[in-house]
Amino acid sequence: MIAQRITKRILLSFFTLLFSASITFFLVNNIPGNVIDVLAAQIMESYGVSYDEAKQMAYTYYFGYESNKSLLERYIDYITNIFRGNLGTSIMYRVPVNSIVVHALPWTLFVLSLSLLTGFAIGTLLGLLMAWRRKTFLDPLVTAYASFTDATPDFVTAMLLFMFLAARLGWFPLKGAYDESLTPGFYPAFIISVLYHAALPILSYVIEHIGFWALIVKGSAASVLEEDFVKAAEARGLHERRILTAYVGRVALIPVIAMLAIQLGYMLGGSTIVETVFTYPGIGYFFSQASSTLDFGLMQGLFFIIILGIILANLAVDIIYPLIDPRARRESAR
């Protein structure tokens, strides 16, 4: 069953990548003429070549194929390039996208993983408590909070935090991932500066996601609580704490874990907004810069990184799933 699941996931991942590459190829093929003209003009100037040659060079340099080949050949060239890990070149920064990724990705991963874990942990705790202690003030409170944050899109939360806590009150920095005057390294001042700069982006995600996780976990835990084995555990005189953790929590989290990957996907998509509001130099920030300045090379490259991230997260969930749910090991155990 695991093998089958993972094979299926890998196939799906492959086709998703292929499909995404086709989309970006389609986009690149539809670049507005003026963008190419500008590029060609720059190349003509710096290399002293003819306009046609410059245009050729622009295509090869930025998008990885030659524009005078047939559509099919271009497509194949393009796809092969992408699958080889050559993600193109940024028009604006004039460097390979890979080198931008190397700088931007760690920041995004840092902020997203911290946000995901914090939101998930707090939400899970609230959800379990809501299911366990049924008639308390917690339930209506968290439910109201969740439906409020559900109605506030990422940009609302991010903008409000930025406006009040950074721009008006000045409690948090306006931009960047760390204090520019510090040299990056593993020493306390730098780490504190990094956390300080990441605080609001992380807070945006966490505020948005706590309610979501709380409700999901509450629903799952409430249905586990009705299971016979929970009642049986009580009859065996197990301690409440043991039942809440090893029984309700453990079993209720199984279906929820699978959603971590999906949620990470949303967050990667949302990073375009959050990182732009806080001018936080991650993947999302560069992606939205690339989109608004029509930097195609960068746009397509980062798009792949985002897709790849989601695919890997899904794969990771598929692999760890059998570790947390023995029932998923069924076939392979025999």
């Binding site: 998509g269 375009t272 989109s291 897709i307």
Partner: peptide, 24 residues
């Protein structure tokens, strides 16, 4: 079904952004 799965995997917001940008 395969197609649906692919569309579900690809994060919608960035694609929407990219397409909207390119087609102005």
């Amino acid at each position: 079904t395969g197609l649906t799965d692919i569309f579900l995997t690809i994060p919608s917001f960035p694609v929407m952004m990219a397409i909207a940008a390119v087609f102005e």
